[in-house]
């Protein structure tokens, strides 16, 4: 089976073309005669590393890191859910920390190192967190899953670094990767299918293995 990105016209491109066709008749004949509107797009250079590969972009300043990843670099594993930082579907790891890629501009990440779901594992060699999700059926529709997995991987790094959470009983004691801790620390990732119990099981397994 061909890789979807190798097809002449994939589903995404089809939607883009369809959208453009629909928009054309709405544009007046004089559209091109108008002066550039106030607030015309501004391009800015930025260069950063994604999954170990360097990318140099000249990009509209308004472009979020999420849109840069998906629309410019075609790394569509990272998902756009709410686009307002509430759902966590867009979670990626930047310089070792999980963030909402929808709430940050691409141009703000000069020389940053970004890891997306594509950089964590491949279909042939799953990341342990991905394998645990498969074993525990940690998803239904799968849309939140890349964000859940990036978030979960970075969460265990936070626990190892001794960062406390809202449910940590003693702020000065070592942090333990308990189920309660995992649930609190994953509250920025919403799963509307409600696969939470299986997601937590997968993460508890990973946490137990990492001690």
């Amino acid at each position: 089976m061909p890789n979807p990105s190798e097809l002449a016209l994939n589903r995404r491109d089809l939607m883009v073309v369809a959208g453009a066709c629909a928009a054309l008749p709405a544009m007046g004949a004089s559209a091109h005669a108008q002066p550039a509107p106030v607030g015309a797009p501004v391009l800015h250079d930025v260069s950063f590393e994604v999954n170990g590969r360097r990318h140099a972009l000249s990009i509209d300043t308004r472009t979020t890191l999420l849109d840069a990843l998906r629309e410019h670099l075609h790394l569509t594993g990272t998902k756009k859910g709410c686009d307002h930082g509430q759902c966590g579907a867009c979670t990626v790891i930047v310089d070792g920390q999980r963030i909402n890629s929808c709430l940050t501009l691409a141009v703000m990440h000069q020389n940053a190192s970004v890891t997306t779901i594509e950089g964590l594992g491949t279909a042939d060699k799953l990341h342990p967190m991905q394998a645990a999700f498969v074993r525990h059926d940690g998803f239904q529709c799968g849309y939140c899953t890349p964000g859940q997995i990036c978030s979960g991987v970075a969460m265990f790094d936070e626990i190892r670094a001794g960062i406390p959470s809202h449910v940590t009983a003693d702020l000065t004691a070592a942090v333990v990767a308990s189920e309660t801790e995992i649930r609190e620390r994953m509250s920025g990732n919403i799963c509307r299918c409600g696969a939470y119990s299986n997601i937590v099981e997968a993460m508890v397994e990973i946490g137990g293995r990492q001690g």
Binding site: Q97, I99, L103
Partner: peptide, 11 residues
């Protein structure tokens, strides 16, 4: 630690 989510607190 009572505010926002881990992703937001990181930024």
């Amino acid at each position: 630690l009572a505010g926002a989510s881990a992703q937001l607190r990181n930024r």
